[in-house]
Amino acid sequence: MDIAALETRFQARIDADERIEPKDWMPDAYRRALIRQMSQHAHSEIVGMLPEGNWITRAPSLERKAILIAKVQDEGGHGAYLYGATETLGVTREALIGELLTGAAKYSSIFNYPTPTWADVGAIGWLVDGAAIMNQIPLCRCSYGPYARAMVRICKEESFHQRQGFDIMLTLARGTDAQRRMAQESLDRWWWPALMMFGPPDADSKHSAQSMRWKVKRFSNDELRRRFIEFTVPQAEFLGLVVPQGTIDWSEFESVLKGNGPCNRERLEARRRAHDAGRWVREAALAYAAKPRPVRQEATG
């Protein structure tokens, strides 16, 4: 069968809402687009561990500390699910992580903002995870099977993240003056970056149309953003916090995406440091595995 015929059949399967599985024929452009989107998503989870991880050692109560460790750990788990799903497309995780560390691959620019106060842990859960859920729920039905299945698992876990964030904000909003101020300042700082998470306006979104045709994306950036605002503003009112007025500064978005955000450098350096410092450990485990010895019997059943 020639390529044109294969492509026609492929698009017909997509149009019929069939799922594409790893060994199925797929257009190179579809494969490349998925690798790009899924690996960016995986990188975002991994880099996303850092801003909140910043507060693990200083969480103000032991219960909050436990919740935060579990939450940041989940982000790592989500990264693992997504790297695994991406690897079904014929790339290795090592190569993908290599692209992250050299700066060739992108990740969500939201994680290049700092978390100077405890309220930022609340704001990230409430707003950033809230926006992520809005983006991710449609992906549970995306055309590529492994991605859709990973997203189902992730979305199940993500709602705990948003709720714990809102719970932090609620406690702060009902707390002392200093705590309320902390909460308001955090909302002020995270509001615009959270809205930018939905991507550029529809008119400027270069990947959107094709992604929609392939059912990798099901709603437009602006549509999701509008829905997020609609849900979130009443929540802010409930908290007694004021949502910033104005419009999105897209030049800031471009600049942060290009590596000029407040924390781009620290985030990548932290990832590189961990990768480099762990090399001898990964090598040791491989060397140990390669040595001949009687097989350790593990029970199965």
């Binding site: 436990a66 460790i69 579990a70 790592g76 790297y83």
Partner: peptide
């Protein structure tokens, strides 16, 4: 162990250390 979260030699080890911390 909480200091390790996000900085372990491999992603899976990050999860393992966090589980022990919890």
């Amino acid at each position: 162990l909480g200091e390790w979260v996000g900085h372990a030699p491999a992603l899976e080890e990050d999860l393992a250390l966090a589980n022990i911390a919890l």
